[in-house]
């Protein structure tokens, strides 16, 4: 005879089993077509490049060495690979600056949206949602048309007599930065807005009541309370920015490579799949370090007097 306790336990176990079964298809697809192959990349990064792409099944640390180093053709001595380091530095710099720029613009925008009346709030949300789900390539292309030498900005500048020749923006780091900030801004605004919408403005009133001025209310009350949104937004912007592919291709014009272009090169003309794999893992490491830093920052609690 099963006791009531046993019956309850069995019911719980069968519920958990059913839940595993239900989630199996999603987990399987993601394992096969997203997560699993990442492990193969790790393996490939330790193999020898094949003559026509792909790899030879022979262990070699060479790919990892060449992430930051160059081997001299004649005497085999190692020196720092300036080109790679420049690209790493540019990618990290551009991703960080993009994150900061979108935060500086997105935070006030989200605040503005959240402080509208309930009726108009939906309209603002709709206006930010449209670019959010509009094709990234199209939006990058739109930026291209604005900033190129024959674009509207330069045309207006020349017509106004401010400059005599067009200002070269396209194919510079600035172009990539402007493009990334433009395409990723909605990714920053939406999560901050989601946090801001839930913000209890009575806490803001309490802050003012307790002698905090506008800036102090912003820094000590509003910002800490919407921090989860700020962190989510920063992650959502930083991850695609560090691996950005379309923006540097379209706006950087091949000269100003970012990590993704360098990786692509190894699988194309470079024919060095192990190096491409090692660089990909390196990008993953940067992302993970950034994620860890954010998570730790999010978990840290401010402790002041008392």
């Amino acid at each position: 005879m099963a006791t009531a306790e046993q019956v309850a336990k069995e019911a719980e176990q069968s519920d958990v089993r059913a839940r595993w079964l239900l989630s199996a298809p999603a987990l399987l697809i993601i394992l096969v077509a997203a997560t699993g192959p990442l492990l193969i990349v790790l393996v490939y990064s330790f193999l020898t490049p094949g003559p026509y792409g792909d790899v030879k099944w022979q262990f070699s640390p060479e790919a990892w060495v060449s992430v930051f180093m160059e081997r001299d053709i004649f005497d085999d001595t190692l020196s720092l690979a300036a080109a790679h380091i420049t690209i790493f530095w540019r990618s990290i710099k551009l991703a960080v600056v993009t994150t900061i720029a979108t935060l500086a613009l997105g935070f006030p925008t989200a605040y503005f949206m959240a402080t509208r009346s309930e009726k108009t709030r939906d309209i603002w949300l709709f206006l930010i949602t449209i670019p959010f789900w509009t094709n990234l390539l199209i939006r990058t292309f739109a930026v291209l048309q604005i900033i190129r030498n024959e674009g509207i900005i330069n045309t207006l500048l020349i017509k106004a007599g401010i400059v005599s020749a067009p200002v070269q923006i396209l194919f510079t780091d600035t172009a990539i930065l402007v493009g990334m900030a433009y395409v990723y801004l909605p990714l920053m605004v939406l999560p901050i807005y989601a946090s801001m919408e839930k913000l209890d403005f009575r806490l803001v009133e309490a802050g003012y009541d307790l002698y905090a001025n506008r800036f102090q209310v912003l820094r000590r009350i509003i910002f800490p309370l919407v921090k989860p949104g700020v962190i989510a937004g920063s992650i959502l912007v930083f991850i695609p920015a560090i691996g950005a592919y379309v923006t540097p291709v379209v706006l950087g014009g091949g000269k100003n490579m970012m990590l993704s272009n360098l990786i692509e090169l190894q699988f194309g003309q470079g024919r060095n799949w192990p190096l491409g794999s090692a660089l990909s893992i390196a990008v993953m490491i940067i992302v993970m370090v950034a994620l860890l830093a954010y998570v730790r920052n999010a978990g840290r609690t401010e402790v002041r007097h008392g």
Binding site: D200, G207, D209, A212, H305
Partner: peptide, 22 residues
């Protein structure tokens, strides 16, 4: 100073930090 109906205590601060805020 005001005592709010909902209390409006700052959730990201401790009891002591709330009291010391003003």
């Amino acid at each position: 100073n005001t005592v709010f109906q909902s209390y409006a205590l700052f959730p990201h601060m401790t009891v002591a930090q709330n009291i010391g805020f003003g």
